[in-house]
C-alpha cells in the first residue's frame, strides 16, 4: 500500500514531502516511464509520424542521389560517389527533423488541458514530463536514422565500421538533445501548435540547404559557405561523413571552414556545448511553466 490511503492523517502527509533519496528515484522512474510509455502507445496506434519521418529522408536519398549520380569525378573532396557523400547528410537531417518535432506532443497536451492534469498529480519532479519527451524523441529519431542508414547501405552507399557506428550514435545523440531542447522550449514559449508547426516548417529546409548535407563548402558561394560552416547540422554531418569514410580519428580535420580547419573533436564539442547550452537556456522557461 502506498502513500494516499484514506486513513492517512494530514501530519503524515506533510512529513512525507521531502522523503529520502531511493524512494524519490523510484518515484521519478515510475512517473517518467509511465509518461514515456504513453508516448510510445500513441506512436504505435498512430504510426504515421514514424513512417513519414522515414519516408521523407528516403525520398531525399533516392532522388538527390539519382540527381547528382553523374556528377563529375573529383567534384567532391575525397573523390567518393555522391550517394556516399549524401548519406551522412540525410542521416543527420532525419534525426534533426524528428527532434524538431519533440515539442508537438507537449504543445497538444498544453492546449487540450492534459498537461494541467499531469500537474495536479503529486509528481516527484516535474522534469519527468520533459524527460519523457526526451527519451521518446531520442529513441524515435535514432530508429528513423537507423532505417535510413540501412537503406543507404542497401543502395551501396556504405556502412560505418564498429568505431564509426559509435561515432554516428554519439553525434546523433548530441544533435538530438540540442534540437529537442530547442523544440521543447518553443512548445512552451509559443502560443499554440499552429505557431509551432510554422516554426518547424520554416526552420527545417533552410537549415538543410545551408549545411554541408547536399554539397561541400567548396561548392558554395562564399556567403553560403560561411552559413554552412556555422550551421550546427554541419558539425553533425562532417564527423558522420568521416566515420563513413573509414579510419576515424577525433583529431582529424573533418571540415575546411572559411575561418579555418575543424577537427571531429571540435565538432562534437560544439554539439555538446550546444545541447547543454540550450537546456540551460530553456530551463527558466520550463521552471516557470511547470511550477
Amino acid at each position: 500500500m502506498t502513500s494516499a490511503t484514506p486513513s492517512l492523517g494530514p501530519v503524515r502527509a506533510v512529513s512525507e514531502g521531502p522523503s529520502p533519496g531511493p524512494s524519490a528515484f523510484a518515484e521519478i522512474r515510475q512517473e517518467t516511464l509511465a509518461l514515456t510509455r504513453r508516448l510510445f502507445v500513441q506512436l504505435a496506434r498512430r504510426p504515421s509520424t514514424l513512417v513519414a519521418g522515414i519516408l521523407q529522408p528516403l525520398i531525399w536519398l533516392v532522388l538527390f542521389g539519382a540527381l547528382f549520380a553523374n556528377a563529375p569525378a573529383g567534384l567532391l573532396p575525397g573523390g567518393g560517389s555522391y550517394g556516399r557523400f549524401l548519406g551522412a547528410g540525410v542521416i543527420v537531417f532525419t534525426a534533426f527533423s524528428a527532434a524538431l518535432n519533440a515539442g508537438l506532443p507537449l504543445m497538444f497536451d498544453r492546449e487540450f488541458g492534459f498537461l494541467n492534469r499531469l500537474l495536479v498529480a503529486p509528481l516527484r519532479s516535474r522534469s519527468s514530463i520533459v524527460l519523457a519527451s526526451v527519451l521518446y524523441i531520442t529513441s524515435l529519431s535514432l530508429v528513423q536514422s537507423l532505417a535510413i542508414m540501412v537503406t543507404a547501405a542497401l543502395l551501396g552507399y556504405g556502412w560505418p565500421g564498429a568505431t564509426g557506428l559509435l561515432v554516428v550514435l554519439v553525434t546523433l545523440l548530441l544533435l538530438v538533445f540540442a534540437v529537442t531542447a530547442l523544440s521543447l522550449g518553443l512548445a512552451f514559449a509559443l502560443p499554440g501548435h499552429i505557431e509551432l508547426i510554422a516554426v518547424i516548417f520554416v526552420a527545417n529546409l533552410p537549415l538543410l540547404f545551408a549545411s554541408t548535407a547536399l554539397a561541400p563548402i567548396s561548392f558554395m558561394p562564399a556567403w553560403l559557405g560561411w552559413l554552412a560552416a556555422l550551421n550546427p547540422l554541419t558539425f553533425a554531418i562532417e564527423p558522420i561523413r568521416a566515420a563513413y569514410g573509414g579510419t576515424f580519428d577525433l583529431a582529424n580535420v573533418v571540415l575546411n571552414a572559411p575561418y579555418g580547419d575543424v577537427t571531429a573533436a571540435t565538432c562534437l564539442g560544439i554539439l555538446a556545448a550546444l545541447a547543454v547550452g540550450l537546456f540551460l537556456a530553456i530551463r527558466p522557461l520550463l521552471d516557470r511553466k511547470l511550477t
Partner: peptide, 27 residues
C-alpha cells in the same frame, strides 16, 4: 476533476487510469 474534460483520445480508459495511477505512485 476539472471542468474541461482533458483525456488522451488514443489511450483506452484503462490505460489512462493506469497512467494516472503511476503519476500518483501507486504500487
Amino acid at each position: 476533476v476539472a471542468q474541461e474534460v482533458a483525456i488522451d483520445k488514443i489511450l483506452a480508459g484503462r490505460e489512462l487510469l493506469a497512467l494516472r495511477g503511476d503519476l500518483y505512485h501507486l504500487g
